[in-house]
Nucleic acid binder design. Sequence first.
RNA 1: GGAGUCGGCCAGGCAAUCGCUCCAGAGAUGUCAAAGGCGCCGCAAGGCGUACCGGUGUUUUUGGGGAGGAAAGUCCGGGCUCCAUAGGGUAGAGCGCCAGGUAACGCCUGGGGGGUGUGAGCCCACGGAAAGUGCAACAGAAAGUAAACCGCCGAAGUUCUAGGUUUGCCUAGAGCUGGUAAGGGUGAAAGGGUGCGGUAAGAGCGCACCGCGUGGCUGGCAACAGGCACGGCACGGUAAACCCCGCUCGGAGCAAGGCCAAAUAGGGGAACAGGUCUGCCGGAAGCUUGCUUCUAGCAGCGGCGCGCGACCCGCGCGUGUUCCCGGGUAGGUCGCUUGAGGUGCACGGUGACGUGUAUCCCAGAGGAAUGGUUGCCCAAGACAGAACCCGGCUUACCGGCCGACUCCCAUC
Length: 128
Amino acid sequence: MIHLYPFRPHHRLHAPAEFERVYRQGRRAGDNLFAVNALPNERGCARLGMSVSTRTVGNAVNRNRVRRIIREVFRAHLTELPAMDFVVTSRPGAKTAMRDAIAGSLQALIERATRPQTPAQSSTPRSA
RNA sequence: GGAGUCGGCCAGGCAAUCGCUCCAGAGAUGUCAAAGGCGCCGCAAGGCGUACCGGUGUUUUUGGGGAGGAAAGUCCGGGCUCCAUAGGGUAGAGCGCCAGGUAACGCCUGGGGGGUGUGAGCCCACGGAAAGUGCAACAGAAAGUAAACCGCCGAAGUUCUAGGUUUGCCUAGAGCUGGUAAGGGUGAAAGGGUGCGGUAAGAGCGCACCGCGUGGCUGGCAACAGGCACGGCACGGUAAACCCCGCUCGGAGCAAGGCCAAAUAGGGGAACAGGUCUGCCGGAAGCUUGCUUCUAGCAGCGGCGCGCGACCCGCGCGUGUUCCCGGGUAGGUCGCUUGAGGUGCACGGUGACGUGUAUCCCAGAGGAAUGGUUGCCCAAGACAGAACCCGGCUUACCGGCCGACUCCCAUC
């Protein structure tokens, strides 16, 4: 059982400019549920921003459901994450995804987005 | 008991635990002399000091609040804000039986009329077709100043034939012109309906009743209803076709808008220029001593541009160049939840609703909280998430509860 941590405003991204910065400069990883952009920050803790649209997820109720699950997953793993800004963008597959699927997807994507980039590997994983 | 109609209400529950957000209290800690308090100085304006009270952040803790009946669609109506104080006309849009309710409505209530159902009920875009224009496929003879295809008639006119004859004409038959909207047929619809009379056959041609129209009367605030008299059918349908009549409507929206403000262009002051325009006031020069010329300012009228949704009127704002001071995008903050507010009671009203009174405070986020996990229970949880706020309408929806009423069956 992991210990649970609070999730306060300074753990979130607020300004449009911050989102823009992560989109432009961050590393990107995605599957059919989400896309995750990650960019190191100077604040000493990880921060989360979400972009979940009704267009990809169906309706407003489902949008809230997906956002809450993302936030809970992020909160549960807050201490394990490096000091980076993450922006999670929904994709149509998230519409019907259950909680466990969302958690699994996010963990894998965060893993890929935060893994130190090694130039030799970048061309090979496709064939492997 | 079954089938159904109408109205109202609920929208999984409980517990533990981990979170988010707002409010209030308490503690810790940072910061602030801008505001209030306090102290000192000063006649006063005011100045100085002070973190004790206080303001404002962060954080801990305690307590409390935290999505809907549709929060939805954004289809109507308002409040609020800004634009001019919301002006006139045209255009445009909406609405359309009557009365009431309301802040207002295209909503609601009650009533009238029409349709529909055995019934409780339900449905209606329900002003005008004798202002004008248009439209009506196919079928049909004919689709609106009616019309003769089949049929009916043979009165009237006329021709032929036959018979009679007082030689004028008469009778019968056939035909033509013709008469006829009863019957058939076509069509969604064929120019009132039924019956009797009438007639050559027919026909509102006449009459009765019904319908329709006109005018009184009675009831009703009215829509309308009832009845009387007259008319003798003139007035077919379609206005969610144009249109006419009546009523209503300015526009944009909280990304409204106010304030504080990094960054940028526009704004205030000074100088120069101006449309050979007009007026007022001031100054200077000339002398003909009350006029001319020059010049500066203000106002008006022009011109140009912009705004007031479109157009016309009308209104407002700005005006070119150079030099000096002030602006308001990012961001923050307010707007932001106490309101046409909820609930109870009383009274008025058939009712929508109103009045009075008591009581309650019931989300307020802002890349956007209102949730996650675990366990238990059952009838196994639908549609679905506030974004300035209300009143409606419409649409979506697992089910459950309550009340009133109708029809059928059975029993007493």
